[in-house]
């Protein structure tokens, strides 16, 4: 057992203060002392000591910074925050909202994957089963997935509108603007690939329209300007896996929707956030 005084990193200190004040309100001593014992045990576990490596008293800015930087969970937050950074009239909170929608979409999407089979005989009926209440909370989860998808497109656009209006795309943040544009495209592609999966008339013809856009792409589309390829080699074929939308197209869109695009998006979101931390906020620091 360590004998020296316990020095708690900030978040635990905050939690401790809250809990201690509640406990002292509820009872005078007993619960308070067992809570203290629990904390003493917690900060001495290998897991905690591995996660928060700074042991010395946090009596300088440098040490507090190190605590933040050395922990996986704490480093998501900025080391210091200016009052203006917290003003919602500046940032509108749209990046955060978009991120949470992506989290919601991932969770609800994974749950939907337990029942949805991406093959032509089953896809539509699985979707109807989910929607019409065969599975508990099925309709709720599907609608949540659907509305969150609409919301993510909307909030991404509002987020970019805000970034544009506050001039946050200017140097040194130009790379993050480019990443943001790529993330917008990925969001739209996720919506587009998800659109086919219900496999009803609306999705079929909507994706036919999208396929036609691929066929009309310059150089890579067989109907586009400067076409260099046949209808069996062009971009639309690569997307749909046939000359028209069928079983091959459904499974392609499914794989893109549930694995490939979310994978790329997750990596880029992480990079996007990392750049926000490195570049700092753009709001006036006065």
């Amino acid at each position: 057992m360590r004998k020296n005084k316990i020095n708690l990193p900030d978040p635990l200190e905050v939690i401790n203060n809250i809990v201690v004040s509640i406990l002292s309100f509820l009872s005078k001593s007993k619960l308070g002392s067992s809570w203290k014992k629990f904390l003493e045990w917690l900060v001495d576990t290998e897991v905690y000591r591995g996660a928060y490596t700074v042991r010395s008293p946090l009596d300088s800015v440098g040490k507090r910074t190190t605590v933040m930087k050395d922990s996986l969970f704490l480093h998501f937050w900025p080391v210091k925050t200016h009052r203006n950074d917290l003003r919602i009239s500046y940032h509108l909170g749209m990046g955060l909202a978009t991120t949470w929608l992506f989290v919601i979409l991932t969770i609800t999407g994974v749950l939907l994957m337990f029942y949805y089979r991406p093959s032509v005989p089953q896809a539509y009926y699985d979707m109807v089963d989910i929607r019409e209440g065969v599975y508990p909370f099925g309709m709720f989860l599907r609608n949540m997935h659907r509305w969150a998808a609409h919301g993510m497109v909307l909030f991404t656009i509002i987020h970019m509108w805000r970034v544009f209006n506050t001039g946050s795309y200017k140097p040194p943040r130009q790379l993050n603007w480019i990443l943001g544009v790529i993330l917008l495209v990925l969001t739209l592609l996720l919506s587009f690939t998800g659109y086919l999966l219900p496999w009803d008339q609306l999705s079929l013809w909507a994706i036919t329209v999208g396929q036609q856009m691929g066929a009309n792409a310059p150089i890579l589309g067989h109907l586009g300007p400067f076409a260099q390829v046949t209808n069996l080699q062009d971009a639309a074929f690569g997307l749909v896996g046939g000359t028209e939308i069928g079983p091959a197209g459904l499974i392609r869109f499914y794989v893109l929707h549930v694995f490939f695009l979310p994978f790329v998006t997750t990596i880029l979101i992480a990079y996007h956030f990392w750049r926000v931390r490195k570049d700092g906020y753009s709001f006036p620091q006065t």
Binding site: L232, Q233, F237, G238, G241, T243, G246, P247
Partner: peptide, 12 residues
């Protein structure tokens, strides 16, 4: 990987 997406035969 890209070539893999363009099969030799399609069931159409």
């Amino acid at each position: 990987f890209l070539r893999f997406l363009f099969p030799y035969a399609i069931y159409e």
